[in-house]
């Protein structure tokens, strides 16, 4: 009996998770791309920047996704680009979530001056146009890698997450189990880590997914306007080049469509997953 209940709770979660069509669709799409990001680069036959074929050729057996105007293999660029875009999304999303959690938990639990201070910083970063700052920073740096890009994106995307987590923390910290931990003599840090954070796990997962989606989009935007990594490929960079060389006007859809559709699909799938998870975590939204 004792052992049964928690299992039931977990299996109920899986039951609802499986029944939720949005989650199934979202996760499936994501899985496809993640698998592709891992496996894809091994299928690559050409160096992405090597002039390996005829210029501007449509998809063929040699070049599955055709070639660019210079004769580079689009599939090679695409496979490596998907990997780096997902990496930036993951890293940027992690950094954004982490900073958001830290600031949100700290301000929300301690309140007072510290909270006011963090709140001001949060609001400043929230108000200044993120993209403009990213552009300025990106333009300033001569060598830009995937890591630096993730860092920029993560460090500018956390404010809304911090706000949401702060609000959650506020509502949790007045719960009686927190008072109980306090009169047991627990330190604030331990209370935040062992009482409050575990209760927000589902919420933190949602925050991470949204940060992930946002980071993918931000990275693509930066690349697209030519401020992406100076070395390497990414989906945004492919699109940037395609647009630069007027792929659309020349009817070279195979150059522009795969990266564009993939970014849309990844971000879309993340949002659908988010809605699905929300429905599962929030019993009120569960459909019986």
């Amino acid at each position: 009996m004792e052992q049964e209940q928690p299992k039931k709770v977990r299996s109920e979660f899986i039951f609802f998770a499986w029944r939720n069509a949005k989650l199934r669709i979202g996760v499936s799409i994501l899985l496809v791309f993640i698998v592709f990001a891992v496996v894809g680069p091994f299928l690559v036959k050409y160096d992405p920047y090597e002039y390996s074929g005829p210029m501007g050729a449509p998809p063929s057996r040699e070049h599955w996704f055709g070639t660019t105007i210079f004769g580079q293999d689009v599939f090679s660029q695409f496979a490596l680009g998907t990997r780096s875009t997902l990496t930036v999304g993951l890293l940027g999303g992690c950094i954004g979530t982490m900073v958001g959690i830290l600031v949100g938990l700290l301000g929300g639990y301690r309140g007072g001056m510290l909270d006011e201070f963090l709140n001001v910083i949060t609001n400043i970063i929230l108000i200044i146009p993120t993209l403009a700052v990213l552009i300025i920073i990106a333009a300033y740096l001569e060598v830009r890698g995937i890591l630096t890009q993730s860092l920029f994106i993560g460090l500018t995307a956390w404010p809304w997450a911090a706000r949401a987590i702060r609000a959650q923390t506020f509502s949790l910290r007045v719960r009686e189990f927190v008072d109980l931990a306090r009169i047991t003599g627990r330190s604030s840090l331990r209370i935040v880590l062992t009482e409050i954070a575990p209760n927000m796990m589902s919420y933190l997962l949602l925050v991470f997914i949204l940060q992930f989606g946002g980071a993918v989009l931000n990275a693509a935007t930066l690349d697209f306007i030519g401020l992406g990594p100076t070395k390497g490929v990414s989906l945004g960079l492919i699109m940037n080049n395609a647009v630069l060389w007027a792929a659309l006007q020349l009817g070279m859809w195979w150059w522009l469509l795969p990266p564009g559709a993939t970014i849309a699909a990844i971000v879309g799938a993340l949002y659908i997953t988010n809605v699905g998870l929300d429905e599962i975590f929030n019993p009120k939204l569960r459909e019986m």
Binding site: R175, F177, L180, I183, G185, P198
Partner: peptide, 22 residues
Amino acid sequence: LKEYYRRVQGVFQDPFASFNPI
């Protein structure tokens, strides 16, 4: 303060909210 809590304790209104549900 810890010594104080050794001697003075509290129990609150809502028994369900007094336990971390997870």
